[in-house]
Amino acid sequence: MKLKNFVIMFITLMGVWLLLNNSLAVPILLSGLILSIIIPFLFCKHCEVFTYLKFTPKSMWYTLLFLLTFLKELLLSNLDVARRVVTPSLPINPGIIEVKTRLKTKIARIVLADSITLTPGTFTIEIIEDSLFIHWIDVKSTDVQEGTKLIVEKFEKYLEVMYG
């Protein structure tokens, strides 16, 4: 159990507790504090995903940029799906394609796969080694390189800095 994992878990739990209670009264603070210390002690043997989080100014800035990109893509993807759904001819051209990722750490790949799932017309079905298999509602290219460029790279450049 590393101290860093413990601290991140503690901050997360405490944050959720305070947001849920919406108050800073002493009994609430105290009970939250005690529980947020006990729970990581009991369960933080396996939370090694946090090990790769970085807290440099650069990574914070990239996290912000990543979130903005993500929200933009989320909005675009919704408009895209909405357009396809309401068009009478149902313009879909689906297929499963393969893309490669350069990311090494577990958490970076999780975040990448989740972001791909929430962006226009794509979602991750399977990860095998460094390949992601993606269901694409409108296949523009079956080539690995081309697909990687279109789908993965816009997130990868941020995630690389955030999680290394």
């Binding site: 879909i92 689906p94 297929g95 079905i125 298999f133």
Partner: peptide, 8 residues
């Protein structure tokens, strides 16, 4: 309608 299945 599926045009490609790389996973298969």
């Amino acid at each position: 309608k599926t045009i490609v299945d790389k996973l298969k």
